[in-house]
Simulated scan of single mutants.
Amino acid sequence: MATVTPDKVLDASGLNCPLPVLKTKKALEELQSGQILEVITTDPGAKADIPAFCSRTGHELIETVEEGGKIIFYLRKK
């Protein structure tokens, strides 16, 4: 279970590449620097895509949790 409290939650369940990353980018634009976004997805490709997005953009991937067929990412906006 995650130990992080998000400032915003994005449920991208049922969406496939590239939508989870695009929606993550848009959701992060709405946050202040240092705030945390929780991204919930069912797209297996997101396991590679979200960390790669963070590496490219400088946002911090705090934690990744897999439970019940969902992949949950916690990102801190740079």
Rank of each mutant, 00 (worst) to 15 (best):
V65Y: 01
I62Y: 06
R76H: 11
E30C: 07
D49A: 14
P44V: 07
I72A: 01
I71E: 00
T3Q: 09
T3H: 07
L19P: 08
K8S: 08
I62H: 07
P44A: 11
K26M: 13
P51T: 06
P44R: 09
E38H: 03
K77F: 10
E29G: 04
G34P: 04
A2I: 02
A52H: 15
K70F: 01
T5D: 12
E67F: 04
E67M: 06
A27M: 05
A52D: 15
T24L: 08
A2V: 07
L28F: 11
K23R: 13
E30W: 10
H59T: 07
I40H: 01
L22Q: 15
Q35R: 05
E60S: 13
P6Q: 05
D11V: 08
C17Q: 14
A12S: 05
E30L: 12
M1H: 08
L10P: 02
G68H: 03
D43I: 02
M1P: 01
D11F: 11
S33L: 13
V9F: 04
C17F: 15
V65N: 04
L15P: 04
T41R: 07
P6D: 07
S55F: 12
L22D: 12
R56W: 12
L61H: 05
Y74W: 10
S55V: 13
T3N: 09
F53T: 00
T3P: 00
G45K: 12
E60R: 14
L31Y: 05
L19C: 13
I71F: 00
K47D: 10
P18Q: 12
A48L: 15
A48K: 14
L10Y: 00
C17D: 13
I71Y: 01
P6K: 04
A46W: 01
G58Y: 11
L31A: 04
P51I: 04
F53I: 04
M1I: 06
D7P: 09
K26D: 14
T64S: 10
V39A: 01
A27W: 02
I36G: 06
A46K: 03
T5V: 14
L75W: 06
G14A: 06
L61C: 07
A48D: 14
G34E: 03
D49V: 05
E60F: 12
P18N: 13
L10Q: 01
P20L: 09
P18I: 13
P20T: 08
D43C: 11
L28G: 10
T41A: 11
L19D: 14
I40P: 00
D43S: 09
I62A: 08
G14Y: 04
I40A: 00
P51C: 09
K47I: 10
K25G: 10
E66Y: 01
F53Y: 13
A27C: 06
T57P: 09
T5G: 11
G68R: 03
C54H: 10
L37S: 02
K47R: 14
P51D: 08
V39Q: 01
K70L: 02
L31P: 02
S33I: 14
C54R: 08
A12I: 02
K8E: 07
G14W: 02
V4I: 11
K26T: 14
D43Q: 05
Q35T: 09
I36N: 07
I36S: 07
